[in-house]
Design a protein around this nucleic acid. Structure first.
Length: 113
DNA sequence: AGGTTGACGGTTG
DNA sequence: GCAACCGCCAACC
C-alpha cells in the first residue's frame, strides 16, 4: 500500500467519525492533518476496500455521494447511511444537518498522532 | 520521463 | 441547482 503514513492518518481519523454523521473528503483530509488533500482521501479509501472502515460516512463537499447515482456502490452507501438514521434524498445529504462537528476533546486527542 | 486519471473542491456562467 | 472549467497530486500507465 503506497503512501502508508498519510493513509494511516486518514484511516485513524475516519474511525473517529460517529455513526449517524458524515464528513466530506476535504474535511477529513483537514482533520487528518493533510489540508487540501481531498483527492488523497479518495485514493486511500479506494485501496482500503471495505477494511472495517466507515467509508460510507464520507461524502463530497456538497453532500452528494461520490459514486455515480444508480451504481451498485452508490446504492450500498445510501443503504448504509439510511441504516444509521442519515436522511438521504437523491443520493444527497444535508451537511448542515448530519455533518460531523468534532468536539474539542476529540480534536485535541487527534492532534497526538 | 511525460501524459493520463480520478471515491475532490472552488469558481463561474 | 447544474454543468463546464480549472487547480490539485499520487498512482498508474
Amino acid at each position: 500500500m503506497p503512501n502508508l503514513p498519510a493513509y494511516t492518518q486518514i484511516q485513524q481519523t475516519l474511525k473517529l467519525v460517529p455513526a449517524g454523521t458524515v464528513v466530506s473528503y476535504g474535511q477529513l483530509a483537514d482533520l487528518a492533518g493533510l489540508p487540501g488533500r481531498a483527492r488523497l482521501v479518495g485514493r486511500c479509501l479506494k485501496e482500503a476496500g471495505s477494511e472495517a472502515l466507515p467509508w460510507h460516512r464520507v461524502l463530497r463537499a456538497d453532500g452528494k455521494i461520490a459514486f455515480p447515482a444508480g451504481s451498485d456502490a452508490a446504492g450500498e452507501q445510501r443503504q448504509r447511511l439510511i441504516a444509521e438514521g442519515v436522511m438521504v434524498r437523491n443520493y444527497r445529504v444535508k451537511l448542515s444537518e448530519f455533518g460531523w462537528q468534532p468536539d474539542s476533546y476529540t480534536l485535541l486527542h487527534r492532534l497526538q498522532f
